[in-house]
Amino acid sequence: MDKVQVLLLLATALFTLGLTGVVIRRNVLVMLMCMELMLNGVNLSLVAFAHQLGEAVGAVLVFLVFVVATAEIAVAIPIVLLLVRRKRTLDLEAFSDLKG
């Protein structure tokens, strides 16, 4: 199997693991971390493709994803802190106030 293919498999695995983690884990912080994992998976696939094609575009996208991830965490952590202050728990199942 080729190197790139292995890396792409790994990227897929990281992405799906992250997604599944978001679904099955209960703790908000853990869910956030799983989302980071998904982003890492995407990043890996970008780097793999960039490596295969010898193009700088993939790397540029990776940097943009870095920034997005940073911004996301910068907003998400205060929100989590607020949620905890409101309900004294990180259990996401306690937060279903927006029920339709």
Binding site: L19, T20, V22, V23, I24, R26, M31, L92, E93, F95, S96, D97, L98, K99, G100
Partner: peptide, 17 residues
Amino acid sequence: LSRVQSGSLHLYAFLVV
């Protein structure tokens, strides 16, 4: 459909899957 809007983030994530 509004029953789907249960407020449970896990459900939403599962629906995404």
